[in-house]
Design a protein around this nucleic acid. Structure first.
Length: 279
DNA sequence: ACCCATGTTCTTTG
DNA sequence: TCAAAGAACATGGG
């Protein structure tokens, strides 16, 4: 689930259990999630105290007492958890850090192993290396307008581009475009200044709402499109529950699902008129 | 058994 | 160089 709000929730969890703690051991159950050599990771972490946490987009930073960073990226299915005894390690724990004096283990859990763990010299160095844009909570409407205006690509893939602004993922972009009443295939350069302002407001609304609910989308307001997505109980393919497939603003309008750039995309045809015209 | 999936990165093709 | 489409990654769950 790791888009910006999930990662922010993980960061807060890590801040609670790990800040002020010293890394006494590094347990590597599956080196596949490492983007750094095992021995380099151990050498960089053992005996280090975690002094703070921060976040850029979907990347979570654990700040070390020597100024370096442990960087966590959660891929599609990653997350964090904690346990005390080895026997209680959560399923799919790929790496864990033993923290003293609390005696807890911080676990990096990731069933699909798309997540990555690495070390960085500084947040700025990492930002540059990964070519990340400003965090989606920080980016201004003017910056968005300036960046979008130069691109003819559809606005959805532009917002997913972490180099334009960092932190937006597939469902959040759909939600943001719905809230801003913009069609995902509108070319970036076609957005007016007032539309970009609406987009910026929608980004703020969706992110702050999601963070407030600790990214638990079931608790999001009824005005959110997310309830029309199928990813909970509704079975794929089978005729799942129709309970939430209508536009929050148009109870008669069924939400359309199709693919943009290979990603499932949900739109309300009434709220979000197409880039050209009607069909 | 088959199909889908919250992300990133590379390759191919035009 | 740019843009679009597709694939690859690894695996669980409906």
């Amino acid at each position: 689930m790791p888009e910006l709000p999930e990662v922010e929730t993980y960061r807060r969890f890590i801040a609670e259990i790990a800040v002020g703690q010293t890394i006494a051991a590094v347990h590597i159950n599956d080196a596949h999630v490492l983007a750094v050599a095992e021995d380099e990771l151990r050498a960089g972490l053992l005996g280090r105290t975690i002094t703070g946490t921060s976040r850029l987009g979907k990347n979570c930073f654990l700040e070390l007492d020597n100024g370096r960073l442990l960087v966590l990226h959660f891929g599609m299915t990653g997350g964090v958890d904690a346990y005390r005894d080895a026997a209680d390690a959560p399923r799919f724990t790929r790496v864990a850090w033993q923290l003293e004096p609390a005696g807890l283990h911080l676990a990096f859990v990731d069933p699909r192993k798309f997540g990555r763990i690495r070390l960085a010299d500084s947040a700025e160095a990492y930002r540059k290396a990964k070519k990340l844009g400003p965090d989606a909570l920080i980016v201004t409407a003017a910056e968005l307008h300036q960046k979008l205006s130069r691109r003819r690509v559809a606005v959805k893939p532009l917002l997913l581009d972490q180099g334009l602004t960092a932190g937006l993922g597939n469902w959040i972009v759909d939600e943001v475009l719905f809230q801003a009443r913009l069609h995902p295939e509108r070319p970036g350069s076609s957005l007016t200044e007032s539309e970009t302002n609406a987009l910026h407001e929608a980004i703020q609304l969706v992110l702050t709402t999601a963070i407030r609910h600790e990214a638990n989308y079931r608790h999001f307001p009824a005005s959110f499109l997310i309830h029309a997505r199928e990813w909970d109980e509704a079975a794929h393919g089978t005729a799942g529950s129709d309970a939430h497939k209508f536009c929050p603003r148009h109870p008669e309008t069924v939400i359309d699902k199709y693919y943009v750039g290979g990603r499932a995309t949900y739109v309300c045809g009434v709220c979000q008129p197409g880039p050209e015209a009607a069909t």
